[in-house]
């Protein structure tokens, strides 16, 4: 649909929000058009290729984001994306992102954390974060396969002594032994990839209580 370009102000703050290679293009509506029913169209470009490509699922949309994960799934390539505002026969110029490099810029999500406790120990099983995939049936790619130096910062808080300490690990199972029985411990885990500064997302805090000391209960009987 052709329109008069430049008749509207451009969308603003257009960037990629990328977590585990799920790459969402997002922007703010053009300024000064409150209350106006604006729609948007999106295109993307693979650096080193020849043409801008349409994202058909994001043509004439009213939302201000567009999932370009499939189009930018080759994380070793670099990309640009752009969006324009449309209202009737008027449209804005394109608002364009900087060069987007998924390998460097994606945020590394936290691992899945499973805790089991007994009297004096807590075992922690970590499952590496997974790369975004198009279909649930596709086989998963762990981010460990992409970032061979992926590590985990595990911090554990003793709620009784109010002490916290941490440990940097690469393997996915660890056991904290010699803990205090009948005590609530809380665990937080962060994925970490040495190298370029990357945004990191810590896991949800999970707490588990060590069991009561069986020997003392036997004595009581």
């Amino acid at each position: 649909v052709s329109c008069v370009s430049g008749g509207l102000p451009k969308p603003t703050n257009i960037t990629f929000l990328s977590i585990n290679m799920k790459n969402i293009l997002q922007w703010n509506p053009p300024q000064g058009l409150q209350g106006v029913e604006v729609t948007y169209s999106v295109q993307y470009f693979i650096y080193g290729q020849k043409k801008w490509l349409n994202k058909s699922e994001c043509r004439d949309i009213s939302r201000t984001y567009c999932d370009l994960s499939a189009e930018t799934s080759d994380y070793e390539r670099q990309y640009y994306a752009k969006a324009k505002a449309i209202w009737g026969t008027n449209c804005s110029k394109w608002a364009e992102t900087g060069r987007f490099y998924p390998f460097l810029e994606t945020q590394i999500g936290p691992p899945e954390v499973a805790l089991t406790a007994d009297e004096k120990s807590i075992s922690i099983v970590l499952t590496a974060p997974k790369k975004w995939k198009k279909n649930p049936e596709e086989s998963s790619i762990s981010l460990e396969q992409i970032y061979s130096n992926l590590k985990y910062n595990v911090s554990i808080h003793n709620t009784k002594s109010n002490r916290t300490w941490s440990q940097c690990v690469t393997n996915q199972t660890l056991v904290f032994g010699w803990l205090e029985p009948d005590t609530l411990y809380c665990v937080l885990v962060e994925s970490f990839v040495p190298g370029p500064p990357r945004l990191v997302q810590p896991s949800e805090k999970q707490c588990v209580s060590t069991l009561k000391d069986q020997t003392s209960t036997l004595k009581v009987k």
Binding site: S155, I156, R163, T164, W165, S166, Q167, C168, F176, G177, W178
Partner: peptide, 13 residues
């Protein structure tokens, strides 16, 4: 230990 400023677990005594 890669970073200072945070308590790090050394060993179980």
């Amino acid at each position: 230990v890669r970073r200072g400023g945070i308590p790090v677990h050394l060993e179980t005594m």
